[in-house]
Amino acid sequence: MTMSYHFVEDVSLADVAFEASGKDLKELFESAGLAVTNTMVRNLASVHTKVTKTVDVEGSDVENLMFNFLQEFVFLKDAERLLFGKIKIDEISEIACKATLYGEKLDSKRHDLSVDVKAITYHMFRVERTREGWQAFVVLDV
């Protein structure tokens, strides 16, 4: 599996930046969604599956779609206190995405909580096709 993400140092001093990639959009979105969660909780394996949520987002283009998709994680963390350790993209095009998220309520005793994501930013935000598939660069406001 080529699905992956890594955090990038010193792009934005006050914030957190990551680069995600995947062989197709499905993998890219899964990687990016996990990277957002991994910013808040340092060990994704500690987030068990107790709740499933389906999200259905649209975008004017693939970047806008990614922005709206990642926003869902931030929204659900605040509105329902949910974290997701597993993501399944059910259907995806460049302008619409349906996904199932698997997770549970955040628990400061069991989760290695790190830092709250306040927002997805457009700072250096990019979703691009690469020779190997797709790549995204995202800066999170924390």
């Binding site: 140092e9 010193d10 914030d15 340092r42 924390v142």
Partner: peptide
């Protein structure tokens, strides 16, 4: 003066 990601690495090393 230093990003969060780097500050953690300086102290903890890479444990992810």
């Amino acid at each position: 003066t230093m990003s969060r990601t780097r500050a953690i690495r300086e102290i903890v090393g890479n444990t992810r």
